[in-house]
Nucleic acid binder design. Structure first.
Lengths: 255, 255
DNA sequence: TGAATAGTGTCTATAAGACAATATCCC
DNA sequence: GGGATATTGTCTTATAGACACTATTCA
């Protein structure tokens, strides 16, 4: 936001020139990104199979160390591009995890991010091969209570997560649930044109429970964030629903 | 939350023994804590006058580098004890600020925390002397839009903030406003027994606007988070209000 | 007694949940 | 036509805002 602006005095300049950052030991700082999508009423997250120690063979979110000259946001975007082949998507910082023993190598402080993407965008990328998988993400708690999350393969078998990624993914779900009702994040998980029923499914999937159809519809229309296109969906074996489009204007938060 | 539990293989043990954390340069990691109170319908924050470079003479929140063997929460608590003399108070991580140029010395990533305290607790400490001040915190935006914050001395004169602390303090106010209506944070800013009017003033001060008296009262009682003590306030020149106590039980979130 | 704020009761507007009725597509 | 879902309308309930009225303390 605000950039540095104050003039630097001579004394300050001297101090800065003599400053030695290596005087005391530093932790490493990593960025981990949870790339989340919703597919067929299931929450999905992208994970990689670790092919090096520590936690060799376990699954983890894309992550990597922050470079000295890039911002945290830039680091997160870089990782998304490099490891998942997506860019320009919704990305937000979540929380910073710093338990001293969370990584056995050395002290690693992880700034966690989460990103939202449509399944379509993700399928352009080569997922599924070489240790990259889009797997189901589930939590066993209701509402916004919080707690760990687990991941499951297509057969419903739990997959082991590396480091403290169960905790981080749990925090992702908690944030999504909390944010859903006042921020336009559902739209990030849908194509440009969508039906209100699809949007409702997104909400229900994230919240983990059904919502009332009538009031959901009214609520969404009342926010002013969606506008009808006049077009109808096709290829459905029932009355086609109207397609809507996300309208950035809206009333903003709708509490 | 979850602690490490997986067995470590021989190969992993070898890898860990040979791992050298100093192979590439690391940023420094600092923790900055905004210690917030409400006094006479004004938001207050504790700031220190910097007596070294950089930003010598400017005002900053208590902060310091994270030690290699302490968690981020521990670091924040340590700073609160050392620089403000308080402990055991509400403390929560806010956001991590990592612009590469936010500190001119070297790359410093700041994990920001905010803490809440009653003015009474704070006055036990020796504030006001030696460059420690409790000053007014104001923002010029409404609702939860977000933006920078400024600080002012008792004469209403703006005081210059060091580094990106305008941005950090703005994020603190934004978080407080967002959290106030579903989390029991108002109570952290009041003594054990308080009147509903006092609680309302806390809310109004944080939100930056008046709230409806009747519905505020109803809403608070409906949450189940307050219980009447039967006692009345004293030394007021009007009908005394009943004193209430915070009751942890409540219904939880009250959306 | 008057000033000031506490606390209660009532009315209205709004939003959510429940449910029924009708519309429109594919098969 | 039958199955399935969309869309609209109505009723009920819960909550917030507005306002009036009474209560209680100190000066």
């Amino acid at each position: 936001m605000s950039k540095r602006k104050r003039p630097i005095s001579k004394a300050e300049a001297k101090f800065l020139a003599e400053y030695d950052a290596s005087m005391f030991p530093h932790p490493s700082v990593a960025v981990d990104v949870a790339l989340v999508a919703v597919d067929e009423a299931k929450l999905k997250v992208l994970v990689l199979k670790r092919n090096e120690h520590p936690d060799f063979g376990l699954w983890s979110m894309p992550g990597g160390f922050v470079q000295m000259k890039e911002s945290l946001d830039d680091a997160a975007n870089r990782l998304l591009s490099a490891k998942a082949g997506v860019s320009g998507i919704f990305l937000e910082q979540l929380y910073t995890f710093g338990r001293p023993d969370r990584d056995p190598r050395t002290r690693v402080i992880a700034v966690a991010y989460y990103a939202l993407v449509t399944v379509a965008q993700l399928k352009e990328v080569h997922v599924a091969g070489n240790g990259v998988r889009l797997v189901e993400l589930r939590v066993d708690w209701k509402g916004e209570r919080g707690g760990d999350a687990k991941i499951f393969d297509d057969d419903g078998k739990e997959m082991p997560l590396a480091f403290d990624h169960e905790e981080i993914l749990g925090a992702v779900v908690k944030r999504l649930r909390g944010k859903l009702n006042y921020a336009p994040i559902g739209f990030e998980l849908l194509p440009k044109k969508f039906t209100l029923r699809q949007l409702q499914t997104i909400h229900e999937t994230i919240l983990g429970h059904r919502v009332n159809k009538d009031s959901f519809r009214r609520r969404m229309l009342a926010t002013g964030m969606v506008s009808a296109t006049g077009e109808l969906e096709t290829d459905v074996s029932h009355r086609p629903a109207e397609l809507y489009r996300f309208k950035r204007s809206g009333k903003g938060r709708s509490r």
